[in-house]
Nucleic acid binder design. Sequence first.
DNA 1: AATGAATGAGCATTCATTCAT
DNA 2: CATGAATGAATGCTCATTCAT
Lengths: 209, 209, 209, 209
Amino acid sequence: MAVKAKKQGVRRASVDDRRELILRAAVEVFSRKGYTGCRIQDVAKEAQVAYGLVYHYFKNKDELLESVFATGWKGFLKLVQAEIDREEHITARVRGIVGVAFEAYRRDPRAVKVLILEVGRSPAGGSVNRGGAFSQVILAAANMFKAAQQRGELPAQLEPVLCATMLFGAIEMGLTTFVMGLLDKRDEAAIARAQEQVVETYLRGVTAR
Amino acid sequence: MAVKAKKQGVRRASVDDRRELILRAAVEVFSRKGYTGCRIQDVAKEAQVAYGLVYHYFKNKDELLESVFATGWKGFLKLVQAEIDREEHITARVRGIVGVAFEAYRRDPRAVKVLILEVGRSPAGGSVNRGGAFSQVILAAANMFKAAQQRGELPAQLEPVLCATMLFGAIEMGLTTFVMGLLDKRDEAAIARAQEQVVETYLRGVTAR
Amino acid sequence: MAVKAKKQGVRRASVDDRRELILRAAVEVFSRKGYTGCRIQDVAKEAQVAYGLVYHYFKNKDELLESVFATGWKGFLKLVQAEIDREEHITARVRGIVGVAFEAYRRDPRAVKVLILEVGRSPAGGSVNRGGAFSQVILAAANMFKAAQQRGELPAQLEPVLCATMLFGAIEMGLTTFVMGLLDKRDEAAIARAQEQVVETYLRGVTAR
Amino acid sequence: MAVKAKKQGVRRASVDDRRELILRAAVEVFSRKGYTGCRIQDVAKEAQVAYGLVYHYFKNKDELLESVFATGWKGFLKLVQAEIDREEHITARVRGIVGVAFEAYRRDPRAVKVLILEVGRSPAGGSVNRGGAFSQVILAAANMFKAAQQRGELPAQLEPVLCATMLFGAIEMGLTTFVMGLLDKRDEAAIARAQEQVVETYLRGVTAR
DNA sequence: AATGAATGAGCATTCATTCAT
DNA sequence: CATGAATGAATGCTCATTCAT
């Protein structure tokens, strides 16, 4: 029985691996060629699997790309949520959130590039979910800001939703500076400085009176 | 000859009208369906001109979309540049730039939506030019910040390029809040408050020490 | 103006020709390969037009095949209707209808083969219309039989709808005998005898008491 | 050994059950989606067996469908043959054949629908066998009619093959009236009347002089 | 300049069939 | 026997672009 369980485990793992393999390949191709340029064939070739297997794991192209977002976003969301839930002063939480984002970029810049450049773009169908995923983070952060206001850690007159969108706007654009090549993405120190400046500027902006 | 000249004048005007007509139609369709979903046929139908006429005025689809950006961006850029060139304290200029962006949104939300959702996000081909257009504004603003630092209006330790990207990030996300429906886009007062908050937060962030 | 009208006429005619050309080609391929085996490419090749042109005139494969039915059926329907409307004894009308069907077979056996072998078969969508077209004839004939009953030309206890379906069933099977090769389709005399037998048997069946 | 035999017996029965199960599922799906729309996967799902198991019992899709016909047809054929072989007047035999067909419809309308809508109508591949199955009944009936003519029960000038095709045409169309919804398939009395009319009309048609 | 019919390469998607487990 | 993952050829359909009128 242990053996059988193990076998099933292996099989399961194998299945997950395959799916994961294709997903990774999709991220790769997607980040290189963008949404439109990404052909299923390229993904299959990149993953070194047969053409039709992609359709074994994903209903269609849209769902595949959807999953790319969902997966990448889910990981990010989880980490961000952990920072949001941290029982600390709002400044520490904001620092944490920015840190999570920059760390993600350092670890897998291509995945972040996809998330940054393609979120909100797509044929009608998918946009809902992606927009939804994005909204989710915004609203979670907005709640965090609202609570902070009630604890007196933040000026009451600020609109929490705007605080949230501006935070992620600052992060996004901070990273975009590297993604677009306006600053050198291989310069670790520059990335660190950018992170610092995003955090400090944002915090001063929302807290200083 | 006068008659002929007049005729030519009329014709030219007519030509420009046609071009303009198609361009406007492209913005319309583009904002509705996004880059990928925008078919030449849709544009022609929207402009109520014949299919092939689009190819008289634009070499191909890419050039058409390129022109959409160029035109929309050119107008925006001109106004932003005017604010950048204004001989005033950096805070006034920043206020001006944010004002220009929000005003543009109030006047033509669809065009702004296109600019926001599609700029810098595109299949390989056009990215250069569009990215270029975007970079242009960033770099112009970066220069403005650098000069402001030299005049002592801004802390010297800030990276000017990041100041610029963060400014536009804040603006973009401020507007995105409405584009994505997180805040009510028909609520004029909310838009005004958002503008105010974006400006104030940003300025406090970069100036407060 | 006359010239212009002529030109337009020519253009129209040309357009109709193209459509017609493709339609004929579709009948040809369809009768050879059946519904499933009929590839758009084959139709295009048969019509000697470009692949995409088929989609210029027909929305998709289904609509093309739909049109094949509609066209073929329309012609048949018109002739049958003429017989139905003839102001004569029911026996003469029935004779006329059978004559129309057999004549159509003599003239274009392939088209009749398509009509006979493919009616009622197809992906869900199309079947409705084809079934509808078929129902139309049945119901028209049923009305004819009902009127005949009221004129006392036919026993009152017969169900008119059944009279109609049985008539066309007799015709269909009479022709099927040749389509399936149970009787020699090149034997003109055999066809004539079959027509005779279908008519006589059917009429005796419904009239004799 | 007894045990083994028993086991084999059980296995055989089980095997037959499995085969039968798949066959039934095929009829089901086939009647719902038609020849083209019937995917192996659908059949497997309907039978609640694994995808590949279908290929243990049937060489390929064609053979599966072939078997559907063969099985359904075999049962029908057997009953029809029994009526054909009955040592009675031709009218009684015809009555019997019609009765068999209508009874089959009452018992399993879906299977009859498949037989009616798909027999003799198919892509090249399978047509031979299916057409063959159909021809078989026709020819058997034709022989019956020929013998009846020799016994003087039927006019000699009738073509026996045509008598046979017309009989099955009348039956087919009588049932088609319900299959196509021209008459209410839930109205038992209507079905009975239809059967009556088909028999009487046909018999009067072929016998009355 | 204006029209829209014609072209065909490109791509997503399906599905019968095989095969390792 | 049983399973369902894996394969890839086949094909419908789209849409940018050209061209005759």
